[in-house]
């Protein structure tokens, strides 16, 4: 008989009093707390949204929409995940909604998409052509795989956090990342040489 080890996501998290205080303040519409949230998590939220939606304008709209949803839903925050993880979950779902409404695939990133914006990326030797290739390959993936890959490899979140954001176990997040990278690995050299 198969011995299955069950891990229920989002349990056992020690939510701080700080997280609950933030949620209560957001529910009450405390402008200062929203500003603090934006200051602490805004950059990462923008990056997550950009990597799901492919341009700055849509990413900013998604971040704005997420703040409104945080205000509306803060009263339901149960402390099962940290407040930031909970906010990222709302953001990812908002990005999915945008993608569904848009009913088109993410266009390959072009400078026109972000006209007027100076996009900054970590200093590295990676060229634009590789980023374009990876973006194209990620675009072909199902939502969940793309999100697990983006959150882990691009944003540096842990599997525990990703599990909480997507409502899956930590182990499943690790498994999805591995199988996604395997798929990308198989296509990588082929796509790069074509």
């Amino acid at each position: 008989m198969l011995q299955a080890v069950m891990t229920i996501p989002m349990t056992g998290h020690d939510t701080s009093a700080e997280d609950r205080r933030m949620a209560a303040a957001c529910a009450a519409g405390d402008a200062k707390i929203f500003e603090e949230l934006y200051r602490r998590f805004g950059d990462r939220m923008k990056s997550i949204a950009w990597n799901h939606l492919g341009n700055a304008a849509d990413a900013e709209d998604a971040v704005q929409e997420t703040f409104l949803k945080i205000h509306r839903a803060a009263a339901t925050y149960s402390g099962e995940a940290s407040f930031s993880t909970w906010a990222y979950r709302i953001l990812v779902n908002t990005c999915y909604d945008v993608l569904r409404k848009r009913k088109r695939r993410i266009e390959e990133t072009s400078m026109e998409d972000d006209e007027g914006m100076t996009i900054e990326r970590p200093t590295s030797s990676v060229d634009d052509a590789k980023r374009m290739t990876l973006r194209k390959l990620l675009d072909e993936l199902p939502e969940q795989r793309r999100t697990v890959f983006s959150l882990f490899e691009i944003e540096g979140l842990s599997h525990a956090e990703i599990g909480q954001i997507l409502g899956i176990s930590e182990g499943n997040s690790k498994w999805i990342l591995f199988s996604t990278k395997k798929e990308l690995q198989e296509k990588w050299n082929r796509t790069r040489s074509s």
């Binding site: 923008k46 914006m117 900054e120 990326r121 590789k130």
Partner: peptide, 15 residues
């Protein structure tokens, strides 16, 4: 290569 490329895709802009 995939990991290194992904790491370089974290995106920031000032608005």
């Amino acid at each position: 290569d995939i990991s290194a490329t992904a790491k370089s895709m974290q995106t920031a802009w000032q608005n």
